[in-house]
Computed example of a mutant assay.
Amino acid sequence: MPNRSDERVVTPGLLRDWPLPSPGGDKTSRGTVLVVGGARCTPGAVLLAGVAAMRAGAGRLQLVVAEESAVPLSISVPEAKVVGLAPEGIPSDQVLEMAAGADVIALGPGLDDIDRALELMGSVLGAAGEDTAVVLDAYALGALSKDAGLLRQSRAVLTPNLVEAGHLLGREPGDDLAAAARELADRHDAVVSLYGHVAAPGGGAWREESGDSGLGTSGSGDVRAGIVAGLLARGAEPAQAACWGAFAHAVSGQRLAPRYGRIGYLARELLDEVAFTIASV
């Protein structure tokens, strides 16, 4: 298993040598991101992930949330197409058509019921193409821990926190997060981004060291997942999107620290820093 010495440190120099695909002028050339999540009490998680995807450069945005949140969210994010889920959480034909047409699906932000997450993930990823890029976060990772076969797409990034990593591993991740990330990457054949440690299946490990304690705040993980989704939509490969996403997330927090201190800034305030952080590499 790898240790810290096996990881390449993510620096601006490394990222400049690993440039993102040049953005096209048309919105369709920068991909469609579909964010699926947002239970009745937590539609804001989908808002954060969706706006982060746009700030990272995605061309089109579609959001799927609980039915009662759809209209308010469409007003809050006028750039997005917003569709509601039925009360029982079963996706409509419209949602499945959106999944089939999306370039990237970010699934999990704001979900709060594991059984509903299992059903929703099975339906949405079942409708998506095998080449569709996928970002799994929050309760979607809990669903994956119960049924690894739900993920059939090969271009996938998992963004667990420590609790979610524990569910996926079936044990506490321990102090060696590099080893935990690699184990999960190989187990699920997906790139894993775990607290600054990025691992690709079969080899490749990186470490982002710019993150600070202020990122440990409600909604911050939703922003990180959205950044990764937006970078995938632009054409980045999963490991590249995970490394650039970890850097953009962490350095956006650094940029807020002079105004708010090391802690105290909000996840939604990260959003306005993302595009400049990526552009300034």
Rank of each mutant, 00 (worst) to 15 (best):
T28A: 09
A179S: 14
G101M: 03
R55I: 01
E237T: 02
D131V: 08
A181P: 12
V228K: 00
T11Y: 00
S220I: 00
S280H: 14
S92R: 10
E273V: 00
A99Y: 12
I114S: 14
G57V: 08
L158Q: 09
L34E: 09
E67M: 03
D189S: 14
P78V: 10
L215I: 09
A39W: 05
A267I: 08
W244C: 12
G126D: 08
S220D: 05
V223N: 08
Y265A: 08
V83N: 05
R259Q: 13
D176N: 15
D212M: 14
D112R: 01
W206C: 15
L158T: 01
P78H: 05
P109E: 04
D175F: 11
G25T: 10
G126T: 08
A133Y: 02
R262I: 11
G13Q: 14
P12T: 01
S92A: 05
R8H: 11
V228I: 11
H167L: 14
G108S: 05
A140P: 13
L271Q: 06
D112Y: 03
L125N: 10
L184T: 03
V281L: 15
S5W: 11
A225Y: 03
G129P: 10
P23M: 13
V71D: 07
V134D: 00
T28Q: 12
G122Y: 07
E7S: 15
Y195H: 15
V46L: 06
G264R: 04
D113S: 09
A250R: 08
A200W: 04
V104C: 02
G149M: 01
T28H: 13
R55N: 06
R55D: 05
S210N: 15
G37L: 02
W244Y: 01
V35T: 03
L151C: 12
A39E: 04
A279T: 13
G122I: 06
G50C: 07
P91D: 03
V95I: 15
D26S: 09
